[in-house]
Design a protein around this nucleic acid. Structure first.
Length: 421
RNA sequence: GUGGGGGUGGCCCAGCCUGGUAAGGCGUUAGACUGCUAAUCUAAUGUCCGUAAGGACUCGCGAGUUCGAAUCUCGCCCCCCACGCCA
């Protein structure tokens, strides 16, 4: 969330920003209204409390008698008034909080203005698209022919949008996860394995709640949610903490299944491009504010290293204001080329959240020892999402005879196996 | 799940029975003093409102009683110990 003083200082600028991001400006208007009443009532409540504090202290040393009784009667009335004002204040504060939680982060100056995904900018494209001397198949054909993905049985045990990896498919998935984690380890990340479920406070912290609540699975009975991305549990590991400057930067990587309801999304019914549960390796960084935009480039490089290692063609997109997600100030998408489908698949999203998440989750650090603490900046990026990596890999490495060559960097994780099928 | 103990400022800890507006210590920073360091002394070290002066809030969270709640009452959360159950 934004610093309320930033909102108060330039409401018109914030209104323009919200429009650039295709978000609802109603929360801003409601905030400004509630905030101004909240401030004046806060002042009034404080004055009455001051009076009560003074008189109460005086009462304690007064002798019994009519004078004391009348003071007590008077204060009883004051207390009632305070109570009713504070009730109204609580309502107003609730409104203020709700509003400010629904106002998006401010885009960085380098982010292109744009309406939707059509206005995203292709920064560059790398890796050669392979020339096929046969018609490349789509991933689900390859996988079914090799019996490494079972779609029907996934539906049987969990429903549509779930699938089963089998045999070399399951082994390949596990190998990819290990490869990703090992590369991140060498890049300086500390591996963590957090809970798969998260509470509502954690979702508020990273910004998925309230605006994405319909996209997540909720276990109402226990007040828990299935994480939509490891970003949520990993970033919130440091919720409510004050770090010393020497502790920064902190780099975490995590492998974790992620869950999305995908309501209202156009269904890619065939295959594993859009599913309800998928594995993902995530990178999360906590850094000093002045470093964050430079670190975003590094983070993107960390994800690209995986793609280059796998030998897959890809491109880098800089998202425009209208297409960026709610919490970030700048975001790159990495898209893998899938020749069977002849399409670019988003396999990673690398974002700088500046202090937006840190303020929601109260993650601070002290720039100077024991002086005033400030919010850190948080960043995260996928490295990488498994299903789409799997799709790109199967389609790029397929052979005329229906087999799939295992990329060299993956072979050590599959006991040296060179082909599947 | 049951029983017991606990949650107090950046950290530690007193106060709770017996209500009167958070004591003390540590760490750190600044100043003073001192050849230097250490020690010592003084001050600062949470959030909010306010241009400021100033004020309010803050004792796990929420509600209640009271002129007044860290303190009393009720509900909830979390941690520790023991027992129970269990992959």
């Amino acid at each position: 969330m934004l610093d309320v003083s930033v909102i108060r200082a330039d409401p018109a600028g914030i209104r323009r920003m919200i429009a650039d991001r295709n978000k609802d400006p109603a929360y801003l208007d409601l905030f400004l209204e509630a905030d101004s009443e909240w401030r004046s009532l806060t002042d009034r409540s404080n004055r009455l409390k001051k009076l009560r504090n003074e008189v109460s202290l005086r009462i304690s040393s007064m002798p019994k008698g009519p004078e004391k009784d009348s003071e007590i009667t008077e204060m009883r009335k004051v207390s009632e008034e305070i109570k009713s004002i504070d009730q109204r204040l609580a309502e107003l504060d609730g409104t203020r909080t709700e509003c400010v939680l629904n106002i998006p982060n401010i885009p960085h100056a380098s982010v292109p203005l744009g309406k939707d995904s059509g206005d995203n900018v292709v920064v560059y494209e790398r890796g050669e698209k392979r020339k096929f001397d046969f018609k490349p198949k789509e991933h689900f054909e390859i996988a079914e022919d090799l019996d490494i993905i079972d779609f029907e049985r996934g539906v049987k045990v969990a429903g549509s949008g779930f699938y089963v990896l089998k045999g070399d498919g399951a082994r390949l998935e596990r190998a990819l996860v290990s490869y990703f984690l090992d590369v991140h380890h060498d890049q300086g990340y500390t591996e963590v394995f957090p809970p798969v479920v998260v509470n509502t406070a954690a979702l508020v912290g990273t910004g998925q709640y309230p605006n994405l609540k319909d996209d997540m699975y909720c276990m109402e009975r226990d007040g828990l949610w299935l994480n939509p991305t490891a970003e949520v549990p990993v970033t919130n590991l440091l919720q409510d903490e004050i770090l010393e400057r020497e502790q920064l930067p902190i780099l975490y990587t995590a492998y974790l299944p992620s869950f999305r309801r995908e309501v209202g999304k156009h269904a890619d019914t065939k295959g594993i491009i859009r599913v309800h549960e998928f594995n993902k390796v995530e990178m999360v960084r906590f850094v000093e504010p002045s470093a964050s935009y430079g670190v975003l480039e590094e983070l993107r490089g960390d994800a690209e290293e995986l793609i280059v290692g796998l030998g897959l063609p890809y491109r880098v997109l800089l998202l425009c204001t209208g297409d960026m997600s709610f919490s970030c100030s700048k975001c790159y998408d990495l898209e893998l080329y899938a020749p069977g489908k002849d399409a670019w698949l988003e396999a990673s999203s690398c974002s700088n959240f500046t202090d937006f998440q840190a303020r929601r989750a109260r993650i601070k650090y002290r720039p100077e020892p024991h002086l005033k603490s400030e919010f850190v900046h948080t960043l995260n990026g996928s490295g990488l999402a498994l299903p789409r990596t799997m799709v790109a890999l199967l389609e790029n490495y397929q052979n005329r005879d229906g087999t799939v060559t295992v990329p060299e960097v993956i072979r050590p994780y599959m006991k040296g196996q060179e082909t599947i099928g």
